[in-house]
């Protein structure tokens, strides 16, 4: 067990690696709004090829978010190009790592749904879309990052450390 150390609160972050440059927190919220809208359409389509295809699109957007960060998704680029120039400068910047982790959680949820659909359980598509919709909606409407909250729970369940 490692010896406990404290982080001086005068230095932000306190993580071993220096924190990456901050991003406008309204970007991920806008992106989550777009994701939520796509998921609503997915749910309205029910089951079938159209719904599955749209959920695959959402999954691909999550892949972009995991590999490039939320600012690198299509929604993030759209926010940067068209929306942020119309807004006042942000009052504070956000660490890009939490929303990126949440993109991974979203990808796992959507991926599980698509897997179930591929295995012959078409209900996997709307169920995964509903779970992801709740997270995306809460993120967009209230700024609550549900995926980020899961991080510590996951760490607690890990057998060691």
């Amino acid at each position: 067990m490692s010896e406990p150390t404290t982080t001086p609160h005068t230095r932000p972050g306190g993580t071993p690696k220096p924190a990456p440059p901050g991003i406008d927190p309204r970007g991920p919220r806008f992106g989550a709004g777009v994701t939520a809208a796509l998921l609503v359409i997915t749910l309205l389509l029910g089951t079938g090829p159209a719904a599955t295809a749209l959920l695959i699109v959402v999954g691909l957007l999550f892949v972009l978010g995991v590999t490039r960060g939320v600012q690198g998704t299509l929604q993030g680029l759209a926010f940067k190009a068209w929306i942020r120039p119309r807004l006042a400068p942000p009052t504070e910047l956000e660490d890009p790592r939490p929303p990126r982790f949440a993109q991974l959680v979203g990808l796992l949820v959507v991926g599980a749904g698509l897997l179930f659909a591929a295995l012959g359980f078409p209900a996997g598509v709307p169920i995964a879309a509903a779970v992801a919709l709740v997270a995306a909606f809460l993120n967009s409407a209230f700024g609550l990052c549900l995926g980020c909250e899961l991080y510590l729970l996951g760490r607690r369940l890990a057998p060691h450390n």
Binding site: S2, P4, T5, T6, H9, T15, E149, L152, R155, R156
Partner: peptide, 19 residues
């Protein structure tokens, strides 16, 4: 005092920190 939970999982478990 600010603790990084990843480095203090013993305290996280002992004090029932879930988020």
């Amino acid at each position: 005092v600010e603790l990084q939970s990843e480095d203090h999982m013993d305290l996280v478990r002992r004090f029932s920190v879930f988020r």
